[in-house]
């Protein structure tokens, strides 16, 4: 046990570097996934078949081929056509495309579930399709899609481990190194578990905050400040003060 802790402390600079790679992959991969999800989700949900059919095909293609296959393709096949990309770029691309395709379904579904009355009101007010989406529909769909996007992000975080197969030295890679000097259970079950759990927790907290903010903007639930404030709000303290008299 003590040796394990000591070995972990000694390996910490490497683990930290691996953790940093994992964080970068997660953040950049999620950012790319989100952009692709919005573009593909809007395309797939568009009334014009010239948009919806290509949107659907791209989504199904990247959902239907596994992340590992996509990674290998980008890392080993593309260079043969003279396209040579650094490992981090390959990782971000593959994660972004794969999870972006899943998230596109979430985006499309959330947009479709904004109540019909909202769409009809925009028509009665003569809004253009772009105006309607940007100012009315998307802001409401956003609040609906955040929980599903959050769970996809946690999956993406775990998916980053797969990029170690193309030799990016991420957290899992360094866990594997640690395993050689400690024991397997320690490295994976303790350090690995705690490491990924803390990352996932941080992600979830950020996404919960985003969701609370989005809901507050729709007039549902307290503002982020009210949630985070450890002291009672002014209104509460007023009413408590009132009771004293």
């Amino acid at each position: 046990m003590l040796e394990n802790i000591q070995a972990t402390v000694e390996a910490w600079p490497f683990l930290a570097r691996g953790l940093w790679v994992t964080i970068q992959l997660t953040v950049l991969g999620s950012a790319l996934a989100l952009v692709l999800a919005i573009i593909l989700g809007l395309m797939a949900g568009a009334p014009a078949r010239a948009l919806s059919v290509p949107g659907r095909i791209i989504i199904e293609f990247f959902r239907g081929t596994s992340l590992v296959v996509q990674l290998f393709f980008i890392f080993f096949v593309l260079p043969q056509f003279g396209i040579d990309l650094p490992g981090m770029v390959v990782g971000v691309l593959a994660l972004g495309l794969n999870y972006g395709a899943y998230a596109a379904e979430v985006v499309r579904g959330s947009i479709a579930s904004v109540p019909r009355g909202q769409w009809e009101a925009t028509t009665a007010l003569s809004m253009s399709p772009v105006h309607r989406m940007r100012r009315v529909i998307f802001p409401q769909a956003w609040a609906l899609m955040i929980p599903s996007l959050a769970s996809l992000m946690v999956h993406l975080l775990k998916g980053t481990a797969i990029v170690s197969v193309i030799l990016l030295q991420d957290f899992t890679f360094h866990l594997d190194q640690l395993r050689r000097v400690t024991d397997t259970t320690w490295a994976y079950a303790v350090v690995g578990l705690v490491g990924y759990f803390v990352l996932a927790l941080a992600l979830t907290l950020v996404m919960n905050a985003l969701e609370a903010r989005a809901k507050h903007r729709l007039g549902r639930g307290p503002s982020l400040r009210e949630i985070l404030s450890p002291t009672p709000t002014a209104k509460d303290s007023l009413s408590t003060a009132g009771r004293g008299f």
Partner: peptide
């Protein structure tokens, strides 16, 4: 744009304040 409608279920935009609901289309349309 020459026609307006009021619905049974109001259909106000929940992501906007009252004044934004009213001014959105006059400004942007």
């Amino acid at each position: 744009t020459r026609i307006g409608m009021v619905f049974q279920q109001f259909n106000l935009f929940p992501n906007m304040t009252v004044i934004q609901n009213i001014t959105e289309s006059p400004i942007h349309v």
